[in-house]
Simulated scan of single mutants.
Amino acid sequence: MYPELARLADEELIEPASQGIRGRRTYAITQAGRRELRASCQPTGRAPIA
């Protein structure tokens, strides 16, 4: 999970929103991340995989 969070942060799709007392981070999606998410959710016209 942590390598994927780091990749998303490197691509500026998420950003750290806060850090707790134990160093636990909360992430927020960026505007670029929202655009990427919307683009990935567009219908493809293909039948769903069963």
Rank of each mutant, 00 (worst) to 15 (best):
M1F: 08
M1I: 05
M1Q: 11
Y2Q: 15
Y2H: 15
P3Q: 07
E4M: 11
E4N: 09
L5D: 01
L5M: 09
A6V: 14
A6P: 04
R7V: 06
R7N: 13
L8H: 01
A9S: 15
A9K: 12
A9H: 04
D10M: 03
E11L: 15
E12F: 04
E12A: 13
L13Q: 03
L13C: 07
L13N: 05
L13I: 00
L13P: 15
L13A: 05
I14L: 01
E15A: 15
E15T: 14
P16K: 06
P16W: 00
A17V: 04
A17D: 15
S18Q: 07
Q19R: 15
Q19A: 14
G20N: 05
G20C: 06
I21E: 05
I21F: 03
I21V: 09
R22S: 14
G23N: 08
G23S: 13
R24V: 06
T26Y: 04
Y27N: 02
Y27A: 03
A28M: 06
A28G: 06
I29P: 09
I29W: 00
I29K: 02
T30I: 04
T30C: 09
Q31T: 13
Q31F: 07
A32Q: 11
A32F: 02
G33C: 00
G33Q: 00
G33W: 00
E36C: 12
E36H: 10
R38G: 10
R38K: 10
A39Y: 02
A39C: 00
S40Y: 00
C41M: 12
Q42V: 07
Q42E: 14
Q42I: 04
P43C: 05
P43T: 12
T44H: 06
T44G: 12
T44M: 11
G45T: 02
G45L: 02
G45V: 00
G45H: 01
R46Y: 07
R46E: 11
R46D: 10
R46I: 08
R46C: 07
A47C: 11
A47W: 09
A47F: 10
A47P: 13
I49D: 09
A50E: 11
